[in-house]
Design a protein around this nucleic acid. Structure first.
Length: 267
DNA sequence: AAGTATATCAACCGCGACCTC
DNA sequence: TGAGGTCGCGGTTGATATACT
């Protein structure tokens, strides 16, 4: 059956120029109409959807509303630690290929991930006074952000596949929390010969022991804390609910600035 | 309590790729 | 083969919520 032949054809189809196209926030009524239409006819042919459903919207607008909001699979709410980790990894691999990144985060839309990146990640780059695409910032992610996320995931998940040894190295399997991290997806970060998170975290340990000694020992957190070991140094991250904020607490940012400026001095 | 700044996120826009005729 | 239509992606904007003074 041609799904476009039945139902919701309330009037003679019109071009978008002919009808006064509505813009701005969608109403509940519009949502209901679009949902009902797609449930019956399926996705795709968005210009037809716009014309035949009676919605005074562009095909693009209908598509966007469906994909980002109305689809049953769409998951709302805070981005989890595991998702943050994946986003960081995938972005370092693919850059701003939001839709591609979104494919690996079930229920998340490219728009959501893009917004997350712009509002959270770029904000941190700004705080560090460096470009989000710079080597400096990539190193910051590599040396602080990703290890800390992993630490927090391990801490919060209770039982983890990650095993912390009593030595200075930390070993992670390819399953972190409830998200399985495909080692092939893990980026080859700058200066890292390995393609696994395992090696990345190990390299952090090595570097922190030599170049960044006792880097995170100073400063004290308040409120709930998550304890962990990073490079042999006992660390505590304040747990403010938003893991991003706890990773990027003042001590970390202060420390990174010191390192970045030290590097600048050397150059 | 009011005004202002900042953060967040839904939605729009422009452009390029792809498809159809 | 190229012109027109459609779709999807990434960048950007604007409205609203929240935090701060």
């Amino acid at each position: 059956m041609n799904v476009y032949e039945t139902g919701f054809i309330s009037e003679t189809p019109q071009s978008e120029e002919d009808m006064d196209v509505k813009k701005g926030p969608w109403t509940e009524e519009e949502d209901f109409t679009l949902k009902a239409y797609v449930n019956i006819h399926g996705e795709g042919r968005w210009n037809s959807v716009a014309r035949l459903s009676g919605l005074k919207r562009t095909g693009k607008s209908c598509r966007l509303r469906w994909l980002n909001y109305l689809r049953p699979e769409v998951r709302r709410g805070n981005i989890s630690l595991q998702e943050q980790l994946l986003i960081l990894q995938l972005h370092s691999q693919w850059g701003n290929r939001w839709s591609k990144i979104a494919q690996h985060l079930p229920g998340r839309t490219d728009n959501e991930i893009k917004n997350y990146w712009r509002t959270r990640v770029q904000k941190q780059a700004k705080q560090l006074k460096c470009d989000v695409n710079s080597k400096q910032f990539r190193d910051a992610m590599r040396y602080v952000w990703i290890p800390r996320l992993v630490e927090q995931i391990c801490s919060s998940s209770g039982s983890h596949s990650a095993q912390q040894s009593s030595s200075t190295t930390t070993t992670y399997a390819d399953t972190i929390g409830s998200v399985r991290v495909d080692p092939r997806l893990l980026p080859e970060l700058s200066g890292t010969s390995s393609d696994s998170l395992d090696a990345q975290v190990s390299s952090v340990s090595d570097l922190t022991n030599s170049k960044y000694p006792n880097s995170l020992q100073n400063g004290s957190g308040s409120g709930n804390t998550i304890a962990g070991t990073w490079g042999g140094v006992e660390i505590e991250a304040t747990d403010g609910g938003d893991s991003m904020e706890s990773v990027w607490n003042e001590e970390n940012i202060w420390f990174l600035r010191q390192q970045l400026y030290d590097d600048d001095d050397l150059n």
